[in-house]
């Protein structure tokens, strides 16, 4: 039996085995077709992935990452501005408070001064009136005393005239009254 005949027989036997339920995976006649279509589909898929789909997805992810980073930057910027505004507000509030306090103190001092001035003025006026009243009282007292003296002198003169039927001189009356008063 020649070698080629053995090979042919073996190949026929293998074919029989495959038809009888051998492993389809080992049927080499299907390999070229499988390899060809694998190359075609895998090649097309790689070409589309590398050229189109992956750059598109990567670009979108990148863009989102940039956008988020930008937004975060902007947010921190806004926060800084807000902090600055708050500081400025607090500063102006403190300034206003201080100013209000100084105005209040000024006004109080002014009012106090005015009150003191008015008090002095009023006191002076009252003193003046008091002095005038005292002067008048003193004058009236003097006047009254003079009138009492006169009345006493008259009475003295009248009493003496009645007693001795002689009118005493004014000097004598005055002397007598002075003596009595002494």
């Amino acid at each position: 039996m020649s070698l080629s005949a053995v090979i042919v027989a073996a190949a026929a036997a293998a074919e029989d085995a495959a038809e009888a339920g051998g492993l389809p995976q080992l049927d080499m006649s299907t390999w070229p077709s499988q390899l060809f279509w694998l190359a075609v589909t895998f090649g097309i898929l790689y070409w589309l992935m590398a050229g189109r789909f992956l750059p598109a997805i990567g670009g979108a992810i990148e863009e989102r990452r940039d956008r988020i980073a930008d937004d975060l930057d902007q947010a921190s910027d806004f926060k800084r501005q807000a902090d600055e505004a708050e500081d400025a507000y607090n500063q102006s509030l403190a300034d206003a408070k201080a100013k209000a306090q100084s105005i209040a103190a000024d006004t109080r001092a002014e009012v106090d001064a005015e009150i003191a001035e008015m008090q002095v003025e009023t006191d002076a006026k009252l003193q003046e009136k008091l002095d005038a009243a005292e002067a008048r009282i003193a004058e009236m007292k003097e006047e009254a005393t003079a009138k009492v003296d006169e009345a006493a002198a008259d009475a003295t003169r009248a009493i003496v005239e009645r007693l001795i039927d002689e009118a005493p001189t004014d000097d004598a009356v005055a002397r007598a009254m002075t003596n009595i008063a002494r």
């Binding site: 299907t30 070229p32 077709s33 499988q34 060809f36």
Partner: peptide, 12 residues
């Protein structure tokens, strides 16, 4: 070369 369209090729 046999590059027949088979069920394998169809599913690829």
């Amino acid at each position: 070369i046999d590059i027949s369209l088979t069920n394998s090729a169809l599913w690829m």
